[in-house]
């Protein structure tokens, strides 16, 4: 049973007739890690912005749990149903790691009684100790920021986790560590993880690998 379905979606930027995505149809299931690969400019980030509700497709439709995304409150969808790990982290840099997580939980309307404790535990799970959690994000390394991004993406217990170049700027050890966390989320917690990357190393962790070429999606493995 798919959690997310793309039905013949196409996309072109406003003012341009050139389609970045062409008639893509796909189904994403819970408990699996999907990796979408492609060269720069192939439309990887565009497809992520569509499935994460940051943008809308110009043709076709996307269904979340069987419901057309057009009839869903996209703000609510982003805050409750999906977690996005951005390539550029997109954390509040003036806030501490902990504050980023707690704020995300607040936005999603989390009912967790002790949000701070939950956030500390979550950060510890992705390898961020308490001392680091209390430091401002601006003072942390890229790897640490990426971990905080992951912690934030799962802080509200979403069904789908979307990761844009999750290991883009990281060293091999950190890359391995991050991918193991994502895999664990899919295989142990039944989350649907969709990662977009141009790294072949990342594809090793995928249950399904898809290639994006000239706006069309092809199954790789």
């Amino acid at each position: 049973m798919s959690i997310l379905t793309l039905k013949n979606i196409s996309y072109h930027y406003s003012g341009s007739k050139k389609r970045v995505l062409k008639n893509i149809s796909m189904e994403f299931e819970p408990g699996k890690v999907y990796v979408i690969m492609g060269k720069s400019g192939a439309g990887k980030s565009t497809i992520l912005s569509l499935v994460s509700g940051l943008d809308v497709c110009t043709e076709g439709k996307i269904e979340y749990a069987g419901t057309d995304m057009k009839s869903i409150d996209r703000d609510q969808y982003r805050s409750k149903n999906i977690g996005v790990i951005f390539q550029g982290y997109n954390l509040l840099t003036n806030a501490t790691a902990l504050e980023n997580i707690v704020l995300s939980m607040n936005i999603s309307g989390s009912k967790e009684k002790d949000k701070k404790k939950y956030a500390y535990d979550l950060l510890e799970r992705v390898g961020i100790d308490k001392e680091t959690a209390d430091r401002k994000v601006l003072k942390l390394s890229g790897g640490e920021q990426q971990r905080i991004g992951i912690a934030r993406a799962i802080s509200h217990n979403p069904d789908i986790i979307i990761a844009d170049e999750p290991t883009g700027n990281l060293d091999n050890d950190t890359e391995k560590n991050i991918m193991e966390i994502l895999c664990a989320l899919a295989h142990k917690e039944n989350k649907c993880v969709i990662a977009v990357t141009h790294s072949k190393d990342v594809s090793k962790y995928a249950d399904e690998v898809w290639g994006l070429n000239s706006g069309s999606m092809v199954f790789v493995k």
Binding site: L54, D75, R78, N90, S108
Partner: peptide, 8 residues
């Protein structure tokens, strides 16, 4: 942008 992306 970050707050809006987080669904606020």
């Amino acid at each position: 942008g970050v707050l809006r992306a987080m669904g606020m």
